[in-house]
C-alpha cells in the first residue's frame, strides 16, 4: 500500500523530530540543574569563557569594525540624497545596537565557537570519553556540558556589545573622518534618538537569548551525534545550520515583541 507507506514515513519523521525536541529539552534541564555544582569550581567556567569568548574577540572585532564602516558608507550615500547626512549616527547606531550587533555576533559565534563545541562533544562521545567519565561516577553533563553552556551565555552579550561599539566607531570613522559629517551632530542625534532601556537593554536581552540558543543547539548536536566520524561531521553541520536558522527566526519574534507597538 503506497498510501499507508507514505503515511507511515510521515509519522516516523514526525515522531523522530518530536523525540529530538524532547531529548534537547531534557538535556537543557540537566545542564541547568548542574549550575550549583559549577559555582564552587569557577575555573571550569573561566576556561570555557576563554574558549568561546576570548578566542572569538578577533573575528568579532574585525567584523564589527567593517560592518560599521560599510553602514557608514552606504548610509551616507542614501542620506546625502535627502540632505540628512547628520542622521548617519542614528542610522548606524540603531541598526547595530538593535539588530546587527546581536544577530551577526550570534551567527559568527555559532560558526566560530558553536561548531567547535559540537565537534568537541561529538568526538568525546565517539571516543567514549563521556562513557569513561560516567564510569568514574562523574556526570558528563555537569562536568563537560554545563560550563560550556554558561560560558556561551556569558560570552555572547559581551561579544555583541563589543561588536556594536566597534561598529559605531567604524561608522564614525567613515562618516566623520572620511566623508565629513559633523562630529557633534553625529553623536548628539544618536543620543537623542536612541534610548538606553528601549534600544541598548533590548539588544543585550536579544544577545542573551541568542547565547542560550546557540550554546544549547551546539551542545545538543554534539551530545546527540551518531558516534562515528560521519556522524560528528553531520552534527557539526547541523549545529551551525540550526543555530543560524534559530537565531534569525527568534530575532524576528523578539523584534516584533520589543519594537512593535
Amino acid at each position: 500500500m503506497v498510501v499507508t507507506d507514505a503515511l507511515a514515513r510521515l509519522g516516523r519523521a514526525g515522531l523522530t523530530a518530536l523525540a529530538g525536541v524532547g531529548r534537547a529539552h531534557t538535556l537543557l534541564a540537566a545542564i541547568i540543574v548542574g549550575l550549583p555544582a559549577l559555582l564552587p569550581r569557577p575555573r571550569l567556567l573561566i576556561a570555557q569563557i576563554f574558549n568561546i569568548g576570548v578566542l572569538s574577540v578577533l573575528i568579532i572585532a574585525v567584523s564589527g569594525l567593517f560592518v560599521g564602516m560599510v553602514l557608514g558608507l552606504q548610509g551616507y550615500y542614501v542620506l546625502n540624497q535627502f540632505g540628512a547626512e547628520e542622521s548617519l549616527g542614528v542610522m548606524v547606531a540603531a541598526s547595530l545596537v538593535r539588530e546587527l550587533g546581536p544577530v551577526v555576533t550570534a551567527l559568527l559565534v555559532a560558526g566560530r565557537a558553536g561548531s567547535a563545541l559540537t565537534a568537541e562533544i561529538g568526538l568525546m562521545k565517539a571516543t567514549e570519553q563521556l562513557s569513561a567519565l560516567e564510569m568514574m561516577a562523574v556526570d558528563p553533563v555537569r562536568r563537560v556540558l554545563t560550563p560550556r553552556f554558561f560560558g556561551g551565555c556569558i560570552a555572547m552579550p559581551l561579544l555583541a556589545a563589543m561588536f556594536s561599539m566597534l561598529g559605531v566607531l567604524g561608522g564614525w570613522f567613515v562618516g566623520v573622518g572620511l566623508l565629513g559629517v559633523d562630529d557633534g551632530a553625529f553623536w548628539s542625534q544618536m543620543q537623542s534618538k536612541l534610548d538606553f532601556r528601549e534600544d541598548v537593554i533590548n539588544g543585550v536581552i536579544k544577545s542573551l537569548v541568542f547565547g542560550v540558543v546557540v550554546s544549547w543547539i551546539a551542545l545538543f548536536q554534539g551530545y546527540d551525534a551518531t558516534p562515528t566520524a560521519a556522524g560528528v561531521s553531520q552534527a557539526t553541520t547541523r549545529s551551525v545550520v540550526h543555530a543560524a536558522l534559530a537565531v534569525l527566526g527568534l530575532d524576528f519574534i523578539l523584534t516584533a515583541l520589543m519594537f512593535g507597538e
Binding site: 573561566i46 569568548g53 547606531a93 545596537v97 559581551l158 561599539m165 538606553f196 543585550v204
Partner: peptide, 27 residues
C-alpha cells in the same frame, strides 16, 4: 587564561558602558 578572561569581560562591560553613555541617552 584567567587574566585574558578578566580582560575580555572588562572589555565587554566597557563596551556596554560605551553604548549606554555615548550611544544612548543615558548620560
Amino acid at each position: 587564561t584567567e587574566i585574558l578572561v578578566g580582560a575580555f569581560m572588562a572589555a565587554g562591560f566597557l563596551a556596554l558602558f560605551f553604548l549606554a553613555m555615548r550611544v544612548s541617552n543615558l548620560s
